[in-house]
Structure formats: structure tokens, C-alpha cells
């Protein structure tokens, strides 16, 4: 391979995108999840990270006319158990647009450690081309890293070196095969006294009334191209007659940083049919 082979000239007109199968969410992301880069979805548990992942796994199989990639998808999951029943439930809504059974084209692989992930990534070349995979979802990357490392400078250094290694391998595959890569991340609470480092559009992320920030710190933030944040606000629904009703959760999605998107946000709801944006 010669250096000039890396030259892409002229530039393509558009980056291919993977739809979220909802016009409002697609509008927020200007068409969907871009191929060739890493998109991170960060949220506390129970806001909808996994729901987004499952929806994308199915949407990848949609034909290009519907914004999909008409290809298979690979899901690497480190949070157990994998929600097979929910996936099956969602797949029923996709059957009419996809010729075969959608579940036949989702490949699922459990992950147990960061080294396991690295090992898998280096063997991905063959799998991706054989199975026509265009989407890789890692749910979640934080679960892999949160137990294994001590809080000493040396261990943290080893950890961040692993981050860069994993990210670089993912980006290589994404670039080579035009894959969309989505990783989910957990959040950690922000303790007031600790140095407050602002990353991205908002210095102040709140979920369920607590101050949070995406896990894995600054070095991982350097490893992803796009970061989306989901959060939840508990609201008391006022019922007719002034009675105080039940608590109701409202969910939102926001672009924290992305090379092609402005700072914007949108409310979404989780229904039986999947995740949908709400216009308010």
C-alpha cells in the first residue's frame, strides 16, 4: 500500500447514514447515525440506551429507500442478560419492510473483558465481510472497564491506552467497511468538590435530578467522534380536579458533541413499537 492510496479525491457528496426509524430523531441527527465514525450514547440506567441499540440493530436491515443499510448487524453486549424478548417484540414491527425474518440477521456476541473485546476486534475482518455486517453495537463499553482497573495512575494509564487501542481498531473497521459503530456508555455522579471539567455543549448534565457525566473520563471522550446524552426528568402529572397524580418520566436526547451537528435536543418516548421523538 502506498501513501497516495490513502488520498480520497474528490470527496464524496454525503456521508452514508443509518436511520433511527423515526423522522424526528433523524432530523435531530441530520439523517441518522453516520457510517465510518464512532457514535456514543451515554445515559444512566433505565433511560433507553438499550432501546436505542435494539432499534438500530433492526433499522440497519431496512432497505436504503427507508434509510437503512440493507445489511446485517452485530451486537456485542456486556450487560447481562441480553433482552431477547424485547428484541423479538420490536422485530414484529419490522417484518413488513424486511424480506426475511429480521432476527436472522442480528448477530449477538457476549463480552467478558476488555481483552476479549480487543481479541474479537482483530478477528472482525472476516466476520464483517462474510456476514455483510454494516452496524456494530457495543452495549455497553463502560461495563467492561468499570470493575477491572484500580484508581492508581499506572492502572489508569493502562486503561486509557486500551481505550485508544479499541477505538482505533473500531475506527479502522468502520472506515474499511463503511460501518456505523454505536457504543453505549454509563454515567457517573459528579461530586461537587472534584475539579469540574467541561466536555461538549453543556457544562451541566442532569438526569433524574442528579448531576452526572459520562463514565470513563477524558481519555475515552477523545476516542469517540459523536457523543449523545439521554436523560430523564421525573414530573408529577397534574390530574383533573387538582389531584396530585402519578410520577411520570419524560426522556430527552441531546447532542453533546459532533463534528456536523449543532447543540440541539429533543424529547422522546419509548413505546411498544420502539423509540420515537416527540414534538412539543
Amino acid at each position: 500500500m502506498k501513501p497516495e492510496d490513502l488520498l480520497r479525491h474528490p470527496l464524496p457528496n454525503q456521508t452514508p447514514k443509518l436511520t433511527l426509524n423515526c423522522p424526528l430523531l433523524d432530523r435531530l441527527l441530520r439523517g441518522g447515525i453516520p457510517c465510518g465514525t464512532i457514535t456514543e450514547i451515554a445515559a444512566e440506567s433505565g433511560v433507553g440506551k438499550t432501546q436505542f441499540s435494539l432499534q438500530l440493530l433492526l433499522a440497519a436491515q431496512l432497505p436504503a429507500a427507508r434509510g437503512g443499510l440493507s445489511a446485517s448487524s452485530l451486537c456485542l453486549h456486556s450487560e447481562f442478560p441480553f433482552p431477547f424478548r424485547r428484541l423479538h417484540q420490536l422485530s414484529l414491527f419490522y417484518q413488513s419492510h424486511i424480506p426475511n425474518n429480521p432476527l436472522d440477521h442480528i448477530f449477538i456476541q457476549p463480552l467478558h473483558s476488555p481483552d476479549h473485546l480487543l481479541d474479537l476486534l482483530s478477528r472482525l475482518d472476516y466476520i464483517v465481510s462474510q456476514l455483510n455486517i454494516r452496524l456494530i453495537v457495543i452495549d455497553s463499553v463502560a461495563a467492561l472497564f468499570r470493575s477491572e482497573f484500580d484508581n492508581t495512575p499506572l492502572e489508569l494509564k493502562r486503561r486509557s491506552s486500551l481505550f485508544f487501542n479499541i477505538s482505533s481498531k473500531l475506527k479502522y473497521q468502520a472506515q474499511k467497511f463503511g460501518l456505523a459503530v454505536v457504543v453505549t456508555n454509563q454515567v457517573v455522579d459528579v461530586i461537587e468538590s472534584s475539579g469540574n471539567l467541561r466536555i461538549g455543549n453543556s457544562g451541566f448534565l442532569c438526569s433524574s435530578g442528579r448531576r452526572v457525566c459520562p463514565a470513563l473520563g477524558l481519555s475515552w471522550a477523545n476516542c469517540v467522534n459523536i457523543r449523545l446524552f439521554l436523560w430523564r426528568v421525573e414530573e408529577r402529572v397534574e390530574e383533573e380536579g387538582g389531584n396530585i397524580g402519578d410520577m411520570k418520566a419524560r426522556r430527552f436526547i441531546r447532542v453533546i458533541f459532533a463534528p456536523h451537528l449543532p447543540d440541539c435536543s429533543c424529547e422522546f418516548i419509548i413505546k411498544r413499537e420502539g423509540v420515537f421523538g416527540v414534538n412539543r
Binding site: K2, P3, E4, L6, L7, R8, H9, L11, S168, K171, Y172, Q175, K176
Partner: peptide, 17 residues
């Protein structure tokens, strides 16, 4: 002119080139 680089060896090669 857009070069997409996936490893540090490629990076060094392109800068030499």
C-alpha cells in the same frame, strides 16, 4: 485533498510523502 489514516505507521508514511 483528504487523507484518512488508520494507524501511526500510515501517519508517518503520509507525512514523509
Amino acid at each position: 485533498f483528504y487523507f484518512r489514516i488508520c494507524s501511526y505507521t500510515e501517519q508517518i508514511a503520509v507525512i514523509n510523502y
